[in-house]
Design a protein around this nucleic acid. Structure first.
Lengths: 181, 181
DNA sequence: TCCGGTTGTGCAACTAGTTGCACAATGGTG
DNA sequence: CACCATTGTGCAACTAGTTGCACAACCGGA
């Protein structure tokens, strides 16, 4: 149950409307916890209902009007509680690895194209992360908050680097394989 | 929709009963596609109903009796089709990174313990992978099938290595942080 | 022999995430 | 002004995964 906490974090960083949140999930939080706008609206409703956030008052609230939310004390408390609570890591789930294992049994047809495709996407993502790192984490930015956020970004960068290396290696191996019958 | 295909792969490697499958998911396939026994039984039912697998005939099939399944040609075909079909990578979801980002806002209380815990688990997993590598992938084992499976194992090993490094680095950083108020 | 632990199979209810669509307001274009 | 794309909010139905429990068969020891 992490989406509500992702939203609380985002709202604490900066009060936002549903759509703004959606955009921020596409850009930054979503790099490690993605969500669609439908999920976000639903969750905003729940959080408001539970008294963890509230809509900022506006002149004329109506459908199709922007509606911004801010976190209430109860919301901050809940986030702090959740953050401090230990959680077991979820076992990973990776379709590509699964497909590779299946390919060992039924043949590697079509896999290579897809490995290349993934390689492209990961390279792109890495470039994006590095751009963020250069832009937002130059020398001098070393408050506690900066360091923590940088740490998270580092994880992203190193993960993408890992995938790029592994995919390159996999493609080499695949090329060296005896051609399928 | 990958669980059925994980099961088909496992059954092609070796026909099994529900419980045997469960065990194998705990040991090997589950390293990158985990599933509970309940999921597995449900899915076996569906696959049988759809004509992709069938129960091996036994003397006295009854509740509480082992029931083994094997893959039918239609099942193999479906697995081959799925394996060859390209799929976009799912955006990743990592609670720990999310919590770290939340910690940047509400404080790092409790995080350190958990980072250590994760570190332990990842070290243990790495050791397990390395044992498998030594046992099953010595020199000489380089058929197409061996190489592909080794590739998958390599991904596991490198991923665990990445996490261990990142967690160590994170713990260092956290120790260097100004103590929370 | 009966009793409790283990093995093996399975249903039901719940939770979280995805997909598809609806619809109001706004702002620019012919 | 009429049209249409874009922005913004939201409901409903579906899919996949999780949790909790039930229950039969088998096996060992008191």
């Amino acid at each position: 149950m992490s989406l509500p906490h992702a939203i609380l974090t985002a709202l604490l960083e900066k009060p936002s409307s549903g759509l703004e949140l959606t955009r921020r999930f596409d850009r930054s939080i979503g790099y490690f916890w993605s969500a669609t706008h439908q999920q976000i609206y639903r969750e905003l409703g729940r959080l408001e209902h539970d008294g963890l956030i509230r809509a900022l008052p506006t002149e004329q609230p109506a459908r199709g009007q922007k509606k911004s939310y801010e976190v209430l004390p109860a919301g901050r408390a809940e986030l702090a509680r959740w953050t401090a609570t230990s959680q077991d890591p979820k076992p990973m789930r990776d379709v590509l690895l699964l497909r590779l294992r299946a390919a060992a049994v039924v043949g590697t047809e079509g896999i290579e194209t897809d490995l290349r495709h993934h390689l492209t996407l990961h390279r792109r993502q890495l470039a994006e992360y590095q751009e963020i790192e250069n832009r937002d984490f130059g020398p001098g930015r070393d408050s506690a908050q900066d360091r923590l956020q940088h740490l998270v970004l580092r994880a992203g960068i190193d993960l993408e680097t890992f995938w790029i290396q592994w995919l390159s290696h996999a493609l080499e191996e695949l090329g060296r394989l005896p051609a399928p019958e």
